[in-house]
Design a protein around this nucleic acid. Structure first.
Lengths: 239, 239
DNA sequence: TAGGCGTCGATTGTCGACACTTTTGGCTTG
DNA sequence: CAAGCCAAAAGTGTCGACAATCGACGCCTA
């Protein structure tokens, strides 16, 4: 144990894996939109808030940096990555590439258990849509896509998907509500699952392409309608 | 400037970007095989050798960790990632997925300049093969594939390719000489370039698949013929 | 009043120190 | 002679400190 200042009443992280815990907290804060794009992540502030020293915070920031969530600006500190609509477009391009592959592989190796898991997740999405819960539909959507990647049976691919999804969640969190209609979101996943169950590679690719293409256009459109008037923030919110 | 112990006659890195410089050196050492898979990367030793303190070394190690080059084992330190033949297979699977996409996109946006660059790189490979220079053929091979990804015009895809290539180079460096015949390597790239120039998506995918499929089988085979006799180093890093 | 310069505070980059864990090596014991 | 145990050594995880640098603010000058 260590003798620390302990400002008062903050969680105080458990020993010996501080770096990973800090990384997780920062990641959460970013994907939940509490740390918006462009926000400065001041080491000292984070360290103080968590009741630890700056060293683990810096190391965690490095992790997040190479995951693309933070950007290091020498001598100025770390900032939450700002994604231009072009970069988001590129990310969707990669997602398309990865998920096509994942879906085809998932179909090839589809087990009853996997198929049921996908079915259940999709039913859950319909349920959420009925309850009109725009906050959780994003998470459920993510989980569905993740299940497909899991079913592809390539651990490295899953990690890659997680990385891409994290980056995209920077902007998703910013947008808040996704697209317009939760029910619509759930519906558009049906053909994808159907194609995977049917197992025709061409149909799978076609449906994944269509589904992600729609999402991509929506997100990019929303993003552009949200951001462009400000060509440059004078000071990125958060001093 | 700072007053340091300065053990003696080592390069002494320039200020203020130590982390990135250390990361680069470690990366080089790993892909060049000087730090073989499983090797321990002792912070203190690295720091001493470079004439700096442990903090930047740790941060650099974190970077490399999330790039998949190092693996952190709590309380035991960082180790060069050991790739099982299955993991290598998964990596090739992803490469296939990414490079297919890259090649098709590259063909769509092919400019004369890009095409010439690819042509020149391939000629260079033939030249290297003639001189029978097995050390540089690997680098040239890598550059050719990288040029294709560059031509795809997606910066994020290029970063991803670099990441995958880095990880694979852990084992490539281990194998030393790649496959058998440099001339053969150069030759097998010809149909890929031809397909990209022709611009038929199906043919592109077919040739990329074939080319990478061959490489993948070769590497996995070599790796398995190299590694399996040793079921475990005394301590298989992983507690 | 607008623009440039110097100063001050805040923050980063790096270091050395210290406590605790893991590993190593030797010594005892069956 | 092998196995097990204890002590010393090495190495990691984290901290607090300090110098260098950056940004903001206010003052001086035109």
């Amino acid at each position: 144990m260590r003798a620390m200042s302990r400002p008062v009443g903050l969680p105080v992280l458990a020993e010996s894996d501080l770096v990973r815990q800090v990384a997780r907290r920062l990641t959460d804060a970013i994907v939940q939109g509490r740390l918006p794009p462009g926000a400065k992540v001041a080491e000292a502030a984070v360290a103080r808030e968590l009741g630890i020293s700056r060293a683990p915070v810096r190391e965690a920031a490095r992790l997040l940096e190479s995951q693309g969530l933070l950007k290091a600006s020498p001598r100025r500190g770390f900032f939450v990555r700002e994604l231009s609509s072009q970069e988001v477009d590129e990310l969707y391009d990669l997602r398309l590439c990865v998920e096509r592959h994942a879906a085809v592989e998932a179909a090839r190796r589809l087990t009853p258990a996997r198929r049921d898991a996908l079915r259940r997740q999709l039913d859950l999405m319909h349920e959420i849509a009925r309850r009109d819960d725009p906050a959780t539909i994003v998470e459920a959507d993510y989980q569905f896509h993740r299940l497909i990647c899991e079913a592809a049976g390539n651990g490295r691919l899953l990690r890659l998907f997680d990385g891409l999804a994290s980056e995209l969640r920077i902007v998703i969190g910013l947008i808040g509500r996704l697209y317009d209609d939760p029910a619509e979101i759930a519906r558009t996943h049906e053909p994808v699952l159907a194609a995977i169950e049917a197992g025709h590679p061409e149909r799978i690719v076609a449906h994944v392409d269509h589904h992600l293409g729609v999402a991509r256009r929506e997100v990019v459109r929303l993003l552009e309608s949200l951001a462009p008037p400000k060509p440059s923030r004078i000071l990125p919110p958060e001093a």
